[in-house]
Amino acid sequence: MFVTSLKKLGLLKFTNSFQLSILSILIISIALIFLASISLGSFNFSLKEIFNSSSSSLDRIVLLEIRIPRVLLSAFVGASLGLSGASLQGLFRNPLADPGLIGVSAGAALGASLIIVLGSGYLPDFIFGTLILPISAIIGASLVISLLYIFTQGFGYQGITYMLLVGIAVNAFASVGIGILTYISTDSELRGLTFWTMGSFGGASWQLILPALLIIIVTMFWMIPSSRKLDLLQLGEPEAYRLGVDVRKLKFKVIISSAITVGISVSLSGMIGFVGLVVPHLVRLLGGVNHSYLLPGSAFLGACLMMTADLLSRVLIQPAELPVGLITSAIGAPFFLWLIFRIRKT
């Protein structure tokens, strides 16, 4: 009923019923994995006890102040990376595109590293408090976006190649910057930096994640309605334009929304590789390539996979914790190779 009325409004015209069932299964999986993730870990709870309010206050504090924000953050970071990977792969018409590729993650990483290594010495804590790291990462990501904008003359008509080349240059520059920072850092800073570049959701607190989640949600709702335009773009830029798509506006939208979500994600959880690349491919393999299915599907599957990866990072070597970026890269890198192999064959 609900689906038919949405179809009549033209919202789901291009999503078939098989794809709708996959999306529904993904939503149910998100709920189940969420419940599993908040109850499992180095500190196990019985959710039933907590709901019956027969649990200790320590249990509640761990659940409400540590576990839930952490799991929520991992879900949203996964969704951001999946969604921006899918939209960038659509925009660049390249199955190997990923937020890391155009240098946005590197820009965010350089911004954050600067604060980790230099910030502690020069900036007193009271200036921004705990928000200084995310703000600095977002500034880094935004600087990269501005560079991209300048070099491609406003994400212009023929700008895609330039954008990828600028991305390569930015990535190289950022790794030099991070390299220098690593070299001059003290032992404790080095430790912070190293863990951060491997990715972790360990630092999540409500104060940090609430504004982030809000911005991510708004950006997603801004991006997902462009799915039809991304489909048309697959015919080529001139064809999309002839079908009524303002290609320049679409580029602007995809790049800006990716910068915002990826910038925030990187700042809060460090470098988490391959999710943006792998998730859209899995979603395509499951049910098809049209973006009205692919964009929400990638956000949902990204959330599922990231919560699972974070759960694994917490339970694999208890009571210690593996950096979650190691887990995603360990799974993602072989998948990437397989993908290149498959592309070469076809």
């Binding site: 199955p95 039809r228 697959q234 015919l235 079908l243 395509r284 390539v289 049209n290």
Partner: peptide, 20 residues
């Protein structure tokens, strides 16, 4: 026309001409 990277079905390509 240009090469299409992803694996769209013929029906999906035709439907791309449909402008809401």
């Amino acid at each position: 026309s240009q090469e299409i990277v992803y694996d769209f079905s013929v029906k999906e390509i035709i439907e791309m001409g449909w402008i809401e």
